[in-house]
Every structure is written in structure tokens, then in C-alpha cells.
Design a protein around this nucleic acid. Structure first.
Lengths: 239, 239
DNA sequence: CAGTCCAAATTGGTCAGACCAAGCCGTAGA
DNA sequence: TCTACGGCTTGGTCTGACCAATTTGGACTG
């Protein structure tokens, strides 16, 4: 079993995110939580500190108050996705959009500042994506490797932090709930990989961005399809 | 005087960010920190928990180890900016780029999904930016209001969280160290505001994105100029 | 001498009970 | 009715202790 203060924190986070405690409402006092969770006040305090640092509550002498979800930290995304067995498809779609936009930004910066050697190194990563005879898992690995490469090469720390944070929260959901149903359309990916290759070769920033726009749509389609399949699977298992 | 656990946390964060503790190194034990900061172990633990949640350290039974900066939370940006009297200009530039890219994404989504009414409401926010006779502070307020509007209208939670987090960490630096030197080129802003207005009116996504690209460059120029002026002022004060 | 294994010391995680100062609330007084 | 006061609750800190996991160093073995 994991750490107790973490259990308490997760329970509180869940309660807040699920709406059991509305924004502006007062959270139970530390001493109340002590009895509810049968824990020591130190553990409860650490849990409260965690909740507070997530931006979900504001703790002051006199009591802790719940904050609006919009004022929270980016780290709540993972908790939101894990709230139910199947993640919120709208949220997934939004995450994909943001990630893609940021990777596109990174790629643009790489294209504008990199040497030819660095660019040809990047193009190497596109090779596996042009093939149609690799497995689904190899395909996603190749996509992730490409993303990671752009992020690192961008040398933009905020960009790296955001993407890694988003991705780390998105990944567990994707691999647990949806991995079995995510079948990438390798042919279309191959087409876009070729276009990306051309854009890199000719240093055409506009083409690069268009390509990422298309990839965004494709990624989201793939995810949507995987979600619907997973949902049907779940309903079949339940019914 | 602020909370003690927070003081300890900030001191530790600063030490890590400044490189006093290298990545992979072991942090002092909680009991050592107790004597160093003349505090209770509970307070030290809360500080360590905060550092750990920032992703700057990984704490396990046996000891806490420092993590690489790239694996940290987005919330370290504020600490990085506040590290010295004048913020790192490269980091500022990167932050501006990311924010602009995200606002551009938000605006794109708004343009694609909004009704005509909502768009004309957006256009109202452009009016003050087309004027040349408003004060610098009113000008920045108008820019921020526009940004905020796009973010809210996008209804994309991750996007909102990222932008708010970035902005809240960027704002104090901007208003403390640079505000006195930030003189926006209102004429150019007015030109871009007009173009943005046209793009919104004609629902031209490509023009919208071009416009945000130009605004990004302008924002960064403004910030760079403010930074150099602030630097000169600081040197003059010192010498 | 090198490698392995075990036990003691160290470290984080938790617990119990206590005190203080700052906010909260109900009541008494104007 | 409104205000001011006092008690109560609440968070922040402290002391001291125990447990379990890890680390570490030395003893033992090849």
C-alpha cells in the first residue's frame, strides 16, 4: 500500500474534482479529516498541502476553501482523466490539440534554428513512420520519439516542461484504457511523414505547420475511434 | 513573516535551481535540515513535500535525490525568473513564445467554433488596442483582457491551465522588474489589431495565425527592449 | 585481493499530545 | 439593529517517540 498522506490527498482531490466539495465551500478541518481517515494530523497536513499546491484549495488559518478548477495546476489533468474508468473524450481531444500545437511550435523553432546536420538527424526519425509493416506499438514509439526529439531540440524549457507534464498524465490513460483499441492509420501517417520530410528538407515552415495541423486531426481521429471502441467493449462487458 | 515551511521550501528550491545541489545528488536528511533551519521536522517535511511535488527532488526512505530541471513541474518557472534581480531574458523570450502560440491556438478554435455574436464581442476588445492615445498600463490591460478572453472562450481546460500558470509566474517579474521600461509600440499594435479584426470578420484562420505570429515578434521585441533598458538602469545604479 | 553478505546506523513515514496566534461565530451590550 | 467583545475553532509549529525501508560499512568468503 502506498503512503498514507498520499491516499488522503488523492481522496480529497477526487472529492473536489467530482464536485463533492463545491468551489468556495469550506473543506473539513484537519482534525475532522484525522478522524475520517484514521490518520495522524501530520499526514493530513501533508495531504492538505498537496491539495493546496495543486491549486484546488486555499488553506488559511481559520479554514481551507476550495478553488475553482480553472485556477488549479496543470497537474490536475491526470486526476481528471483517472476519475472514471474511461477518460473524458472531450478532455482527451483538448490535450491532444494542445500537445500537437506545442510540438508544432517546437518543430518550427527547430527548423528555423537548426543546422542541416541536425535536420537530417531529425529526418531519420521519420523513416519508421513511412513504413506500413511495423507493429502498432512500434508505430506509437516512433511517434513519441519524434515528439520527444522536437521538444528536446527546441531547447525551450517551458515548452519541454508543459509537454512532458501533459504527456505523462496522458500516457497512463492512453496505455491502460485505450491502448488495445488504438489502431493508427499507418497509411495516412506515412503520407504525412513524407510531407513532413519534404517540409524539413526544403525548410518550408508553412508546409511544416500545415502538416502538423493534419497530424493533429489524424491523432484526434485515432483517439476518438479508440475511445468509441473501448466504450463499446465496456458496454458489452457490462451488459 | 511568511510560513516557516514555505521559507524552508523556497530556500531548498533556490539551492537546487542555482545548482548548489546537482541532479542525482542526495539532499540533506530531514533531521539535518531541522538543525540548519532551526525548525521542526514537520515543517521540514512539508517543505520537502513541496520540493518533491515541484518535481525537483524524489524523496524515498533512505534519502531524497535531486532531479534534473527538465523533469520538474511548470511551476518552477516562477522560481527561475525570481532567481536574480533581473530575469533571464532567454527564458522570458521562450515564455512569451509559448504563451503567444497557445493564445493563437485558442483564438483559432474560437474562430472556428464561435457564433457571429461571440466574434463581434471579441472584436470589441480590439477597439482600445487600435487607439494611440491610451496610457501604457491601459494598453497592457487591454492586451491581457484580449488574451484572457480568447483563453476563456476556447473552453479548453488544459490550455487555460497552462496559460494561467505561465502568466501568473511571468506577471510578477514583468510588473516588478520590467514594467517601468516596457513601452509598447502602439502604432504597430494598432496595425496588427486592425489585421486581427479583419481576420475575425472574414473568419480567415490563416490570416489570424499570421497575425499572431507578427504579434509574437512584436511582444518579444518589446520585452527585449524593456530588459535592456532595465539592465542599463541597473548598471547605472550600481556604477 | 575482489566479491558477497549481513547487521547496524541512517532516513523517511507515521503517530501522539501539546501550545500559540489568527480567523470565525455567537452573544451581550449600545 | 448594529457593533464590539469574548470564546471557540482552525491552521502552524513544536517535542519526542516508534516503525520500516534503505543505505552503508565491515566482516566473511572465494
Amino acid at each position: 500500500m502506498t503512503v498514507k498522506s498520499e491516499q488522503i490527498a488523492n481522496a480529497l482531490i477526487r472529492d473536489i474534482l467530482v464536485g463533492r466539495y463545491q468551489a468556495g465551500e469550506r473543506l473539513p478541518s484537519e482534525r475532522d479529516l484525522v478522524s475520517r481517515f484514521d490518520a495522524n494530523r501530520g499526514a493530513v497536513r501533508e495531504a492538505m498541502a498537496k491539495v493546496a499546491q495543486l491549486g484546488l484549495a486555499q488553506v488559511q488559518p481559520g479554514g481551507a476553501r476550495v478553488c475553482e478548477r480553472e485556477r488549479a495546476s496543470l497537474d490536475i489533468i491526470g486526476h481528471l482523466l483517472a476519475q472514471s474508468e474511461l477518460p473524458d473524450p472531450l478532455l482527451l481531444d483538448q490535450i491532444l490539440t494542445v500537445i500537437n500545437s506545442l510540438v508544432s511550435l517546437a518543430a518550427t523553432q527547430v527548423l528555423e534554428h537548426s543546422t542541416n546536420d541536425a535536420i537530417s538527424e531529425t529526418r531519420q526519425l521519420l523513416v519508421p513512420l513511412m513504413r506500413l509493416d511495423i507493429s502498432d506499438s512500434e508505430h506509437s514509439e516512433a511517434r513519441f520519439a519524434l515528439m520527444k526529439h522536437f521538444m528536446q531540440a527546441s531547447e525551450n524549457l517551458p515548452l519541454q516542461l508543459i509537454c512532458r507534464t501533459l504527456f505523462e498524465q496522458f500516457a497512463p490513460t492512453a496505455s491502460n484504457a485505450l491502448a488495445d483499441f488504438a489502431a493508427p492509420d499507418k497509411e495516412r501517417y506515412a503520407v504525412y511523414a513524407c510531407r513532413l520530410d519534404d517540409a524539413l528538407l526544403s525548410k518550408d515552415v508553412a508546409a511544416l505547420r500545415r502538416c502538423f495541423g493534419a497530424l493533429d486531426a489524424l491523432n484526434r481521429e485515432t483517439m476518438t475511434r479508440a475511445f468509441m471502441l473501448a466504450q463499446h467493449g465496456q458496454e458489452a462487458a457490462a451488459g
